[in-house]
Simulated assay, not measured.
Amino acid sequence: MIEIPTLDGDGAFDAYLAEPSGAPRGAIVVIQEIFGVNPGIRAKCDGWAGKGYLALAPDLFWRIEPGVELDPDLPNEFQRALGLMQKLDQDQAIADIEAVIREARRRMGESKRVGAVGYCLGGRLAFMTAARTDIDASVGYYGVGLEGLMGEKHAIARPLMLHIAGADHFVTPDKQKLIHEGLDDHPKVTLHDYPGEDHGFATESGARRSDAAAKLADSRTEAFFAEHLG
Protein backbone atom coordinates (compact mmCIF):
# COMPACT_ATOMS: atom_id res chain seq x y z
CA MET A 1 0.00 0.00 0.00
CA ILE A 2 1.19 3.51 -0.79
CA GLU A 3 -0.14 6.89 0.32
CA ILE A 4 -1.45 9.39 -2.23
CA PRO A 5 -2.17 13.06 -1.39
CA THR A 6 -5.57 14.47 -2.27
CA LEU A 7 -5.83 17.03 -5.05
CA ASP A 8 -6.49 19.86 -2.59
CA GLY A 9 -3.72 18.73 -0.26
CA ASP A 10 -5.98 18.43 2.78
CA GLY A 11 -5.38 14.74 3.31
CA ALA A 12 -4.03 11.49 1.92
CA PHE A 13 -5.40 8.04 1.23
CA ASP A 14 -4.03 4.55 0.67
CA ALA A 15 -3.85 2.76 -2.65
CA TYR A 16 -2.71 -0.75 -3.44
CA LEU A 17 0.23 -0.67 -5.86
CA ALA A 18 1.33 -3.52 -8.12
CA GLU A 19 4.41 -2.93 -10.27
CA PRO A 20 5.59 -4.78 -13.36
CA SER A 21 8.99 -6.45 -13.42
CA GLY A 22 10.34 -4.00 -15.99
CA ALA A 23 9.52 -0.50 -17.19
CA PRO A 24 5.74 -0.09 -17.32
CA ARG A 25 4.03 0.05 -20.70
CA GLY A 26 1.38 2.27 -19.08
CA ALA A 27 -0.71 2.43 -15.93
CA ILE A 28 -4.17 1.20 -14.97
CA VAL A 29 -6.27 2.54 -12.11
CA VAL A 30 -8.41 -0.32 -10.79
CA ILE A 31 -11.61 1.11 -9.31
CA GLN A 32 -13.12 -0.94 -6.52
CA GLU A 33 -16.56 -2.45 -6.14
CA ILE A 34 -18.59 -1.59 -3.06
CA PHE A 35 -16.52 -4.16 -1.14
CA GLY A 36 -13.36 -2.09 -0.83
CA VAL A 37 -9.83 -2.93 -1.93
CA ASN A 38 -10.34 -6.58 -1.07
CA PRO A 39 -8.35 -9.62 -2.25
CA GLY A 40 -10.23 -9.72 -5.56
CA ILE A 41 -9.36 -6.11 -6.43
CA ARG A 42 -5.74 -6.62 -5.41
CA ALA A 43 -5.65 -9.71 -7.64
CA LYS A 44 -6.89 -7.58 -10.55
CA CYS A 45 -3.96 -5.22 -9.94
CA ASP A 46 -1.48 -8.07 -9.73
CA GLY A 47 -2.81 -9.41 -13.02
CA TRP A 48 -2.27 -6.10 -14.79
CA ALA A 49 1.23 -5.83 -13.34
CA GLY A 50 1.93 -9.27 -14.79
CA LYS A 51 0.95 -7.89 -18.20
CA GLY A 52 3.42 -5.02 -17.88
CA TYR A 53 1.28 -2.25 -16.41
CA LEU A 54 1.67 -0.21 -13.25
CA ALA A 55 -1.61 -0.85 -11.40
CA LEU A 56 -3.13 1.15 -8.54
CA ALA A 57 -6.35 0.56 -6.62
CA PRO A 58 -7.33 3.52 -4.39
CA ASP A 59 -9.29 3.08 -1.18
CA LEU A 60 -12.30 5.23 -2.10
CA PHE A 61 -14.07 4.66 1.23
CA TRP A 62 -11.21 6.21 3.22
CA ARG A 63 -13.21 9.23 4.37
CA ILE A 64 -15.98 6.96 5.69
CA GLU A 65 -14.03 3.95 6.93
CA PRO A 66 -10.47 3.34 5.73
CA GLY A 67 -9.19 -0.13 4.93
CA VAL A 68 -12.53 -1.79 4.18
CA GLU A 69 -12.30 -5.35 2.81
CA LEU A 70 -15.63 -7.15 2.46
CA ASP A 71 -16.73 -10.51 1.06
CA PRO A 72 -19.74 -10.21 -1.29
CA ASP A 73 -20.69 -13.84 -0.64
CA LEU A 74 -21.45 -13.10 3.03
CA PRO A 75 -24.92 -11.50 3.36
CA ASN A 76 -24.05 -9.32 6.35
CA GLU A 77 -20.93 -7.96 4.61
CA PHE A 78 -22.91 -7.39 1.41
CA GLN A 79 -25.40 -5.25 3.35
CA ARG A 80 -22.57 -3.36 5.01
CA ALA A 81 -21.11 -2.65 1.57
CA LEU A 82 -24.43 -1.22 0.37
CA GLY A 83 -24.43 1.14 3.33
CA LEU A 84 -20.91 2.36 2.55
CA MET A 85 -21.86 2.97 -1.08
CA GLN A 86 -24.78 5.14 -0.02
CA LYS A 87 -22.45 7.29 2.09
CA LEU A 88 -19.84 7.75 -0.63
CA ASP A 89 -19.54 11.21 -2.18
CA GLN A 90 -18.98 10.18 -5.80
CA ASP A 91 -17.72 13.61 -6.84
CA GLN A 92 -15.00 13.33 -4.20
CA ALA A 93 -14.27 9.81 -5.40
CA ILE A 94 -13.61 11.13 -8.91
CA ALA A 95 -11.26 13.74 -7.45
CA ASP A 96 -9.39 10.96 -5.64
CA ILE A 97 -9.20 8.95 -8.87
CA GLU A 98 -7.76 12.02 -10.58
CA ALA A 99 -5.13 12.21 -7.85
CA VAL A 100 -4.22 8.58 -8.61
CA ILE A 101 -3.95 9.37 -12.33
CA ARG A 102 -1.50 12.15 -11.50
CA GLU A 103 0.48 9.85 -9.21
CA ALA A 104 0.69 7.23 -11.97
CA ARG A 105 2.00 9.80 -14.44
CA ARG A 106 4.49 11.08 -11.88
CA ARG A 107 5.85 7.57 -11.37
CA MET A 108 6.05 6.70 -15.07
CA GLY A 109 6.62 10.02 -16.79
CA GLU A 110 4.09 12.06 -18.72
CA SER A 111 4.79 10.23 -21.97
CA LYS A 112 3.12 7.04 -20.71
CA ARG A 113 -0.66 6.64 -20.81
CA VAL A 114 -3.06 5.89 -17.98
CA GLY A 115 -6.28 3.89 -18.14
CA ALA A 116 -8.97 2.99 -15.64
CA VAL A 117 -11.06 -0.13 -15.16
CA GLY A 118 -13.89 -0.36 -12.64
CA TYR A 119 -16.42 -2.89 -11.45
CA CYS A 120 -19.97 -2.37 -10.11
CA LEU A 121 -19.71 1.00 -8.31
CA GLY A 122 -16.33 1.23 -10.03
CA GLY A 123 -18.01 0.69 -13.39
CA ARG A 124 -20.11 3.78 -12.79
CA LEU A 125 -17.06 5.71 -11.61
CA ALA A 126 -15.13 4.59 -14.70
CA PHE A 127 -17.79 6.26 -16.86
CA MET A 128 -17.58 9.41 -14.74
CA THR A 129 -13.77 9.31 -14.95
CA ALA A 130 -14.01 9.16 -18.74
CA ALA A 131 -16.30 12.20 -18.74
CA ARG A 132 -14.58 14.30 -16.08
CA THR A 133 -10.82 13.66 -16.27
CA ASP A 134 -8.06 13.41 -18.86
CA ILE A 135 -7.77 9.62 -18.50
CA ASP A 136 -6.52 8.05 -21.75
CA ALA A 137 -8.94 5.09 -21.85
CA SER A 138 -11.56 3.62 -19.51
CA VAL A 139 -13.45 0.35 -19.05
CA GLY A 140 -16.55 -0.20 -16.92
CA TYR A 141 -17.95 -3.58 -15.91
CA TYR A 142 -21.67 -3.68 -15.07
CA GLY A 143 -21.81 -0.07 -13.91
CA VAL A 144 -24.91 0.85 -11.93
CA GLY A 145 -26.98 3.93 -12.74
CA LEU A 146 -25.30 4.74 -16.05
CA GLU A 147 -28.66 5.59 -17.58
CA GLY A 148 -28.76 8.62 -15.28
CA LEU A 149 -25.37 9.87 -16.52
CA MET A 150 -26.24 10.31 -20.18
CA GLY A 151 -26.13 14.08 -19.74
CA GLU A 152 -22.34 13.76 -19.40
CA LYS A 153 -21.73 11.65 -22.50
CA HIS A 154 -20.78 14.68 -24.61
CA ALA A 155 -17.68 15.11 -22.41
CA ILE A 156 -16.28 11.66 -23.24
CA ALA A 157 -13.40 12.48 -25.58
CA ARG A 158 -11.27 9.36 -25.19
CA PRO A 159 -12.08 5.66 -25.62
CA LEU A 160 -14.54 4.04 -23.21
CA MET A 161 -15.63 0.38 -23.20
CA LEU A 162 -18.60 -0.85 -21.18
CA HIS A 163 -19.45 -4.46 -20.34
CA ILE A 164 -23.18 -4.93 -19.72
CA ALA A 165 -24.56 -7.99 -17.90
CA GLY A 166 -27.77 -8.94 -19.69
CA ALA A 167 -29.47 -10.38 -16.60
CA ASP A 168 -28.12 -7.78 -14.17
CA HIS A 169 -30.64 -7.50 -11.34
CA PHE A 170 -29.32 -4.00 -10.56
CA VAL A 171 -29.41 -2.81 -14.20
CA THR A 172 -32.72 -4.05 -15.56
CA PRO A 173 -33.55 -4.37 -19.29
CA ASP A 174 -35.29 -0.97 -19.41
CA LYS A 175 -32.14 0.68 -18.03
CA GLN A 176 -29.93 -1.26 -20.43
CA LYS A 177 -32.12 0.01 -23.27
CA LEU A 178 -31.55 3.61 -22.18
CA ILE A 179 -27.80 3.03 -22.04
CA HIS A 180 -27.79 1.64 -25.56
CA GLU A 181 -30.00 4.43 -26.86
CA GLY A 182 -27.67 7.00 -25.31
CA LEU A 183 -24.35 5.49 -26.35
CA ASP A 184 -24.70 3.21 -29.38
CA ASP A 185 -23.83 6.02 -31.77
CA HIS A 186 -21.11 7.61 -29.60
CA PRO A 187 -17.84 7.54 -31.57
CA LYS A 188 -15.70 6.96 -28.47
CA VAL A 189 -17.84 4.32 -26.73
CA THR A 190 -17.93 0.56 -27.29
CA LEU A 191 -20.64 -1.55 -25.64
CA HIS A 192 -20.52 -5.32 -25.11
CA ASP A 193 -23.57 -7.27 -23.92
CA TYR A 194 -23.40 -10.58 -22.05
CA PRO A 195 -26.85 -12.23 -22.32
CA GLY A 196 -27.92 -14.21 -19.29
CA GLU A 197 -25.05 -12.96 -17.12
CA ASP A 198 -25.69 -11.32 -13.76
CA HIS A 199 -24.00 -8.47 -11.94
CA GLY A 200 -20.50 -9.32 -10.77
CA PHE A 201 -19.82 -12.01 -13.36
CA ALA A 202 -16.17 -10.96 -13.80
CA THR A 203 -15.16 -11.06 -10.15
CA GLU A 204 -11.89 -12.93 -9.58
CA SER A 205 -13.46 -15.61 -7.40
CA GLY A 206 -16.55 -16.47 -5.41
CA ALA A 207 -20.14 -17.34 -6.17
CA ARG A 208 -20.77 -14.46 -8.58
CA ARG A 209 -18.07 -15.39 -11.10
CA SER A 210 -19.16 -16.75 -14.48
CA ASP A 211 -15.92 -18.05 -15.91
CA ALA A 212 -16.56 -18.04 -19.67
CA ALA A 213 -18.13 -14.57 -19.69
CA ALA A 214 -15.41 -13.22 -17.38
CA LYS A 215 -12.64 -14.51 -19.65
CA LEU A 216 -14.34 -13.07 -22.73
CA ALA A 217 -14.82 -9.64 -21.13
CA ASP A 218 -11.31 -9.61 -19.73
CA SER A 219 -9.80 -10.53 -23.11
CA ARG A 220 -11.66 -7.60 -24.68
CA THR A 221 -10.43 -5.28 -21.93
CA GLU A 222 -6.84 -6.45 -22.36
CA ALA A 223 -6.97 -5.86 -26.13
CA PHE A 224 -8.59 -2.46 -25.58
CA PHE A 225 -5.83 -1.31 -23.24
CA ALA A 226 -3.12 -2.75 -25.50
CA GLU A 227 -4.52 -0.62 -28.32
CA HIS A 228 -5.05 2.62 -26.39
CA LEU A 229 -2.36 2.52 -23.69
CA GLY A 230 0.42 0.56 -25.34
Rank of each mutant, 00 (worst) to 15 (best):
K51G: 00
A130L: 03
G83S: 12
L121P: 12
D71F: 04
L70Q: 14
R107Y: 11
E3D: 13
A202Y: 00
G67T: 07
K44Q: 11
L121S: 10
E3P: 05
V189W: 04
E65A: 06
R220Y: 04
Q79T: 15
Q86T: 09
F61Y: 13
D46A: 09
L54W: 06
A157D: 14
P195G: 09
L160W: 02
S138R: 04
A27H: 01
I41N: 03
A167N: 13
Q90H: 11
F201S: 04
Q92E: 13
E3N: 12
H163C: 01
A217P: 02
A217I: 07
D211V: 04
E110W: 07
V37C: 06
L84S: 10
L56K: 08
A165I: 00
P75M: 05
V100S: 05
A49N: 06
Q176V: 05
H199N: 08
I94E: 05
P187C: 03
M161S: 11
P20W: 01
H192Q: 12
I28W: 03
D134K: 10
G182L: 01
R63V: 05
V117A: 02
L146H: 09
V114K: 10
G206C: 04
A165H: 01
A15D: 14
H180M: 03
L162G: 01
L149S: 14
E3V: 09
D71N: 15
G151F: 08
F225I: 03
C120M: 02
Q32Y: 05
D136L: 00
K177R: 14
A167I: 12
M85A: 15
F35E: 09
L7A: 09
D8C: 06
A165S: 09
V139Y: 01
N38C: 03
K177L: 09
L17N: 14
H228G: 10
F225S: 06
G36E: 06
V144W: 12
A55D: 11
G200H: 00
D193I: 00
V117D: 00
I179K: 05
E227P: 04
G148K: 15
L7D: 06
I164Q: 08
K153G: 08
M161G: 07
P72Y: 05
P20G: 10
A126K: 04
K177T: 12
T129D: 01
A43H: 09
P58W: 07
H192P: 04
A226Q: 15
R208C: 02
P5F: 12
K153M: 10
A12D: 11
G11R: 08
